[in-house]
Structure formats: structure tokens, C-alpha cells
Design a protein around this nucleic acid. Structure first.
Lengths: 231, 231
DNA sequence: TATTGTGAAGCTATTCACAGCC
DNA sequence: GGCTGTGAATAGCTTCACAATA
């Protein structure tokens, strides 16, 4: 994960907490589906893969929604976290770059059980334009500004090749989009106040490789075969 | 991003630094292609989107590879960072779950300019098995253990539906895979010493929504149209 | 002179441990 | 008695600012 906080923070929830709220929410929704009425910090923490003190401190930033001796009311907490995350409104999303990845995202139905609507798919390739993907017609990138304005897009997703990403980001920003999720392997330059998050496959793999190498070096023997030497 | 450090850290590089090294590496490789021989911390930091003090401290963890008054030799630094990240060897990767996303990853050629080889694509769907994707034949998930063993897979990528992910992770671990990159929206349970990183689209969107809501609330007017109210 | 490498300071996040409350 | 909420302690990360040095 990587983030750029849009402003210093106004009387706010710590960034690290914000990043975990979605995880808690997902665990709570699972409990809700099973009809569980209340949950202890211990049990919820376990489901979310964090320790219970951290969970309690995180939740304390939202307010006092637990009951001592009992735990948290699942339904209520789902609502509070959803509200805090801004999921009680619907955010319009545009995806630019309809290659394999763009298509994968467009088809990915369950965006955290609602909160987001994919409103537009755009691509620069004329051959792509007009095709139907996930029951949307792919538009031409030239219509970006128009689409953002007319459909109230506030979150832009970039799945273009690296070379195109900065230009798309700039156009998004000038069109008024304040939140960008970038899958292209480049550092985007945006003005202050615009929030960019990036998802970068090769970075993740490289971090894994670092730890794997550590492990191999620390062990006496080479545990999980590291593969061919390449000089 | 999210990580689980495999062990406390053995005389090591801070986790936050490790997560940035791939970014520096990418910027350096771009400079290398343009034939730039040296770069200052200021310039490299700019390209990587961090401040220069942080960059210098990060690099200082690898050793003293700069020259005062001059900067860093690009070639040399590329080599040092690659080595530190374990990219001077080749890591065998298996992808399980060949849906839209699995296919997208399989076709994504430039894995950070080498270091990783996709060795196997596996799926549970018999209709999928035998198809060719990115010049590899999709195998059946039942062959996971055999494939991991015979091809020396040490990094497993999970792009299955949420329901299947934990079972796949467990099989990876039992087969000796110590590094897992998880795209499925679940918290994976793995033994200590196994390194899991997750990439989760809806979490990223939810974090963006949180900040977008903040921004909208802070402004007098609603800047970038937030979309429809939903109760 | 220009730029690195790094102690020291400041900030953020995590964990502990227990008082407070149901 | 059981579990939350939270101050205090600790650990980790970032930034400052400047001495060291090619």
C-alpha cells in the first residue's frame, strides 16, 4: 500500500487506522451474514488478522461503540464504519486503459459490497472503443473530461501502460477528479490535495523476494528452492 | 500494501525502506536507459516521489555508495539495490486462479525487468485446464504440490475467488512455498515464517472514499461531485 | 563548493496493562 | 467476571540540520 495524505489531517483518524477499517468492515459483514449479533474485540481482531489492543484503539477513534463485558454490536459497527469510510454514498468510478487488467477490474463485481459504481471505461485504442465490457460500452479517451463532468466521476482508476499514465492522471485532475488509483508502474505527479494510491505488482514481488532471500540466507539449508543463479 | 514480516529482523534494513527500494530501482533503471552516469539524492528523490533526506537514509542502510559533492553512480546503485532485493537470482512464480485477473498478471510481461519467471498457471475449472495463456498451458490445481516441487516455485500468487484462497494458501505452504501474494479479499492464515502480502482493490477504493469524503466535508462547497445519496 | 551520511529531534504507530464499566 | 477504552511505555519512521569530505 502506499498513500499520499491529502491534507495534514483535520481532527482526524490516523492513516494507519483508516487503512484497517475496510478489513474490519469485511470481517463484520461476514459475521452479519451469519447472523452473529455481537462480537468481542478478541474475536474480531482474530478474524481481521490484527491484535485486539490495536483493534480497540482503532475503533476508539470512531467513538465508543462497544459495551464493556459484552463486545460490539455487529450491525451497529458495520453502519458506523461504513459511514466513516464514506460508503453510505455511491462513488462514481472511471477506468482508463481497458487491457487485461482494466477488463478484470471492470468485471470484478463485488466492490466491497457496494459504495462504488463503475460509470465509464475509456481507452485510447480505436479498435477497443465501442466494445462492450461488463455491460458498459468502452468510450474514447478524448471524452474523458466530458464523461467525468456528466457522470460525476470522483474516483479515477488508471490501468494504462506506464507511458500513458501521467497524461491520464493530469487530465483526471484537471477535470476535477480528486482521487486516483494507479496500477501503472510510475510515480504520478499531482497537485497537493489530490489523493493518489498505487497498486504495483512488481513492487510487491520484489518485497517478497527480499524476504525470501533473507530466509534462505538465514537458514542453514536452502529451504524453498530459490531457482537459477543469473550472476 | 500490507505485510507480515517473517521474523523480527536480523540485523536488517527497516521494512519501510525495503518497500521503497523497488521504487528507487525503477527510477534508476530509467536513468540508466538514458545513459545518465550519476545522480544526486535530490534528483533521484524527486523521480521517486520522496524527500531527499529519506532517500539518503534509506540508501545508507545498504552501505556508503555515494560520493560527497557528486552523488550516486547509477550503474553501481542499480546493482546494489538489485542484489539487496534478491533480483540477481530468478524466482519461480505460480499463479493460481486463471480468471480475468490471473490472465492479466500472466500476460503482464515486465516483472520489474526480470527477477521473476512465471512457471505455472493453475485453475480448478476443468474447462480452463489445458488452455494456453501467455504461452503456458493451464494445469489443474490438483497438480499444485507436484508443480511447486518440480519447478522450484517459491512465490505463489493467489487470484482465486475469496472462498478458495485459504485452501490454496495452505497447500502452497505445505508444499514449501514461503512467499504468497494474495489478491483474494480474505485474510489468510499462515504459519509464522511465511510471508504474505495482499493487494486488495476494494480496500484501496474505500481508503480513497474516506479521504474524498473528508475533502468534500472540509470544503464549503462540494468540489468533485460525490454522486448519489443512498440513505 | 556541492552533496553525502547521520546524530538528534519530532512524530506516528503499536503494544502493554489496567482502571472503569456493564 | 468479562471486556472495553485508554493512559503510559515502547518501537519505528521521518525530517532536520550540519559536520564530514570528495
Amino acid at each position: 500500500m502506499t498513500s499520499r495524505t491529502p491534507r495534514p489531517r483535520e481532527r482526524g483518524i490516523p492513516e494507519a487506522t483508516v487503512a484497517r477499517l475496510p478489513v474490519y468492515l469485511r470481517a463484520l459483514q461476514a459475521l452479519q451474514e451469519r447472523g452473529t449479533p455481537t462480537v468481542s474485540s478478541e474475536a474480531l481482531a482474530e478474524a481481521a488478522g490484527v491484535n485486539s489492543a490495536k483493534l480497540r484503539k482503532d475503533l476508539s477513534h470512531l467513538g465508543s461503540y462497544g459495551t464493556r463485558g459484552v463486545g460490539y454490536e455487529v450491525e451497529h459497527l458495520v453502519h458506523q464504519i461504513s459511514r466513516e469510510l464514506g460508503l453510505t454514498q455511491d462513488w462514481a468510478v472511471a477506468i482508463v486503459g481497458i487491457g487485461n487488467l482494466g477488463r478484470a477490474l471492470a468485471n470484478y463485481g463485488g466492490f466491497g459490497t457496494r459504495g462504488f459504481r463503475i460509470e465509464a471505461l475509456l481507452d485510447a485504442d480505436p479498435a477497443m472503443v465501442g466494445q462492450r465490457v461488463a455491460s458498459l460500452e468502452v468510450g474514447h479517451i478524448d471524452s474523458l473530461e466530458e464523461v467525468v463532468g456528466s457522470r460525476g466521476v470522483s474516483i479515477g482508476v488508471i490501468t494504462t501502460p506506464a507511458e500513458a499514465a501521467q497524461a491520464v492522471a493530469t487530465r483526471f485532475v484537471e477535470a476535477g477528479v480528486g482521487s486516483i488509483l494507479n496500477f501503472a508502474p510510475v510515480v504520478l505527479n499531482v497537485p497537493d490535495g489530490v489523493d493518489v494510491r498505487k497498486v504495483d505488482l512488481s513492487i510487491e514481488l520484489q518485497i517478497l523476494a527480499f524476504h525470501a532471500q533473507r530466509r534462505a540466507a538465514g537458514d542453514g539449508q536452502v529451504a524453498a528452492a530459490p531457482g537459477l543463479e543469473l550472476t
